[in-house]
Each structure stands twice: as C-alpha cells, then as structure tokens.
C-alpha cells in the first residue's frame, strides 16, 4: 500500500503511543491518557488495540488477530488484513507461533509464553464507569485508591442475588493498587491474567486510554472472603473436540432451539481435532481430509 508509512501510523503518532505504553508498563493497571488518532475504522471496532499493535509491530513479527476467541470472525479478519496491507507482517492462527496477538473479548486457551504480547481491544477502560459516569470523579477515586464504591456495589449484588452477577469485564486489582477493567473477557479468563508470562497491553481508542500488565504481575479478581471469585463456563464439553475445560460458544442448530456448545478459541479446537480429539458432533477433521 503506497502513501502510508510502515504500520499505517505516522512516526510522531507512534512515538506518542510508545511513550504512553512505557508509562503504562511502569505503572501497572493505571490508565495512561493518550491522544488517540482517528483510525480508518470505527471507534468501537478496536481502534485502541489497532493503534497499540501498530506502535509495537516490527517487520519480523507474526501477528494473530482474534475476536471472541476466533480467527475467522469478520472483525478479526478485517483487522488482520489491515495489518497485512499496511505493515506487510506475517500472520498466523496458531497461538504458540504468534509474537503479537490482538484480541477482542478472549484470552487464548493455549498458555502464553514469555516474549509474547497480548493486545486487548477495550471499549470502556474505566472499571468504575458504571458506578460513577464522571471521569473527573473516577480519576480522584483512583488517585486515592478509594474503591469502596466498587466493593459496596459487588456486595449489594451478593445481597440481592446471592452471587456477584458480573459475568464479563470482571474487575481486577493489580499488585494491590489499581483496580482495572480487564476488557470484556468472560470472567472465566480472569485467572489467565494473574502472573502471565506474556506482556498484556490494553488500548481504548475512543476513550483515549492505554494500560498494561507486565509479565508476572499480581492480578486479583475482586471478591470477598465468604464469596470467593469463581471463574465459570457452560457446563458442557465442546461438541467438536470434546474439551470440557475450554470456554464455549453457544450455537443454535435447529428450528426447535436445539443447541450445541463449541470452543470459542478456534485455534485451540482445531489443534485438538488435528490431534485426533473428537466431540459428540464432530465431522471428520477437515484438514486431515484435505
């Protein structure tokens, strides 16, 4: 593609984002304001993640892009082809082979390794936003580490429902200091944040915030002694690969509302099937047939 520099963003913009990233890494869980640019894709489609990825990419990288855990969802396809076009980088669907993984709403099932970077697309970076809409107020709460309001809200939930109802974007506390929104990953994925060997970067384009978790950072999901945090998933095994420990998508398969549950992580599911694992509704493995 002509007329645009490597990885689309001009160098000054990349420097600005890079400086914000370094401060974000230096202050884990703190949201660093950055002057997000207007990208050639809509706000809400991953403009923050795309800017972070663009600022981090080198020509040697292998990029994986997932949305809802899948490499083949339309938004993942679109972002992957954007970076192929503007940065000419190699892409992969294999989690273990990727050096940078941009994700929306999931952390891959395959454990990440040191040296990998996971870039999250974040819609609302402020974990306190639904308790207090004003940025001027939530900024003070973070400054004072005043998270009483959050605990009160979670406890009210328990009083009313007997459990914390938050199912995704479940707030975490980083190194005992900043309360952070892990982006709308299911709370099933929260434990993968804790002491992950990979570097995790979070980009919120519209809200102009970048934050980070360095490798091996202590990340605790907020809970109470008598109501400990519980990662949950559908109580089924994947109908294709038979995994009963991976996070599942729910698919409606007939007019009577019949369902099946399949791995949301398509690479994980594919590699299990390639290794001969079979679920109850599995077709013969397509790659083997080819």
């Amino acid at each position: 593609m002509t007329g645009y520099t490597f990885a689309y963003l001009d160098e000054q913009t990349k420097r600005m984002i890079r400086r914000a990233l370094l401060k974000a890494v230096a202050i884990p869980g703190y949201q660093v304001p950055f002057s997000s640019r207007e990208m050639p894709m809509p706000y809400g489609w991953g403009t923050g993640g795309v800017q972070v990825t663009a600022a981090c990419l080198t020509p040697e990288d292998r990029l994986k892009v997932i949305d809802q855990g899948a490499d083949d969802t339309t938004n993942a396809v679109s972002i992957r082809s954007f970076f192929r076009k503007v940065a000419g980088v190699a892409t992969t669907e294999a989690t273990a082979e990727a050096t940078i993984i941009q994700t929306r709403h999931r952390i891959p099932e395959t454990p990440l390794a040191e040296g990998q970077i996971l870039v999250f697309q974040v819609p609302i970076p402020e974990p306190l936003r639904f308790l207090e809409p004003r940025e001027t107020e939530t900024r003070k709460m973070h400054a004072l580490a005043d998270y009483g309001l959050m605990h009160v809200r979670l406890y009210e939930d328990i009083a009313r429902h007997g459990a914390i109802t938050r199912a995704y974007a479940y707030p975490v506390q980083v190194e005992g200091r900043y309360v952070m929104d892990p982006s709308p990953i299911p709370k099933f994925d929260n434990p993968k944040l804790h002491r992950s060997p990979a570097l995790m970067l979070f980009g919120a384009g519209r809200e102009q915030r970048i934050y980070a978790l360095p490798p091996y950072t202590e990340v605790r999901s907020l809970d109470f002694e008598d109501y400990p945090f519980e990662p949950t998933k559908a109580g089924h095994a994947c109908a294709l690969c038979g995994d009963d420990a991976s996070y599942l998508d729910e698919v409606i398969v007939d007019d009577a509302g019949g369902r099946m549950f399949v791995c949301s992580d398509t690479d994980h599911c594919r590699s299990r099937r390639a290794a001969g694992r079979r679920g109850t509704m599995a077709a013969p493995f397509e790659d083997a047939a080819a």
């Binding site: 809400g44 489609w45 949305d67 809802q68 855990g69 969802t73 339309t74 938004n75 929306r104 709403h105 999931r106 199912a167 995704y168 974007a169 709308p184 990953i185 299911p186 709370k187 099933f188 949950t232 998933k233 559908a234 996070y247 599942l248 998508d249 729910e250 949301s264």
Partner: peptide
Amino acid sequence: LPHYVDFQSES
C-alpha cells in the same frame, strides 16, 4: 459486532 462470549457468560 459479535458479543457471543459476553452474551454466553451472561446467559
């Protein structure tokens, strides 16, 4: 956009 994952966890 797809929100299958969040919706599944909610439901």
